[in-house]
Design a protein around this nucleic acid. Structure first.
Lengths: 130, 130, 130, 130
DNA sequence: GTGGTCTAGACCACG
DNA sequence: GTGGTCTAGACCACT
């Protein structure tokens, strides 16, 4: 299987209460974190996503635009939308603190919803394999 | 420790994009599913929740109202709000959805901060060992 | 005249070819740079701007949203939109370079359009006084 | 130095939000207004501009076409593109608009970078003295 | 009454 | 064909 044939696909959860554009943003960011999206990869076109998910193109564009403002993607007018080069990380002490905080909050949220940390780790690993 | 002294506490995640009232509803349902809330348990008052979380009482009221409509809680005027007797089916599909959503959200936030999912998993495992 | 009575007003130039939402963004940023907008100042409401300029509220919201993503303004749901606290500047060498570059580009653009730098300085001073 | 050897060069500002074809049109008009372009002067070819600015020839063609429609330039098939004979009224309103727009844009960019308009003015004056 | 999300659909800009 | 801007209008969330 060639890498180029891999297609990034969005999925919506209409029951989640999370706004559609936000789900799209989260999935791109999660794709980058899990390694399924890398710098230079092309995202599906605005219209393609709109058709696939049966949503309005404007909603897709809004998500892509916000990702562009944040520097996560580059859009090239008339060409397509691509994952941007990762900007260099900040100082490492600050980063270690951020990771610690994220993990702590994650564990707390899991507990609140009645899941064990182990269950969540497994779910994360599953996402990484996809 | 008496059961009645157990305090159910809500937590909000402003970064999640999930509407506040929806987070409240989810946490009550999750508490029931996980066993930390059982029939007859009292929920904190609308005012108490509003003060604790620094949100508008109307928002809390709306969440409680929707839970009452669903038959999840009983509101006894002048007394308080309690988990209803009615058996709640442990909606496993709903719980799977919440787990999925939580994992996606944190993978996305890891990506936003420039971490990989693998780094997050390692941090969580490290915390689990402590 | 009390400071609080000062009202920030947008103006559109329909002949400029610059997208409306972009004109709004630029005017907020210019207002901050010129000192006519400061941290905590409230911007006119989305609907008010839409009515004043006879444009669609969505266009205004788009401008405000982009400013919020960039950290220039804070929006408080149900309350209004406010100029955010200035985030601390970066290291001074980098900043001096940026200012130098901006001034150089400014002078070049002025020349291309057939204006003298002096004319532009006067226009900038005029904007600062408003 | 012969007059014909003078080269008219376009400059693009990708940060301005102004459409490319519009920037080209403005610069020709400004060149005429400021006297750096006069009747009979030849403009660079469509291909040359496209290569220099790394833009699509169609974009250049569209700008030239619009200028021709306005009577600002004459396109002589197989020969080149020239500033038209017809007297161009020095449209002072249009030039005032451009000056205003330029000042607003740079004030906005100063604000984005965390500078005040006053700082920008001082830098410009400093450059002017050199 | 404040901002927020989404749809439908038109028209523009760029390659 | 790609992305971009704007309008009109509905319905939701929060104070």
């Amino acid at each position: 299987m060639s890498r180029a044939s891999r297609v990034f696909a969005f999925r919506l959860d209409p029951a989640s209460g999370v706004p559609v554009y936000r789900q799209l943003i989260d999935q791109v960011q999660a794709g980058i974190a899990s390694g399924s999206l890398a710098s230079g990869d092309q995202l599906p076109t605005v219209r393609q996503v709109a058709v696939d998910l049966a949503i309005n193109p404007n909603t897709v564009m809004r998500a892509y635009r916000e990702l562009e403002i944040r520097g996560v993607i580059d859009t090239e007018h008339g060409t397509g939308t691509f994952i941007a080069d990762r900007k260099q990380p900040r100082d490492s002490a600050e980063r270690a603190r951020q990771l610690e905080q994220l993990a702590t909050e994650f564990a707390a949220r899991a507990g609140t919803l009645g899941f064990t940390v182990q269950q969540l780790i497994e779910k994360l690993q599953e996402k990484g394999r996809k």
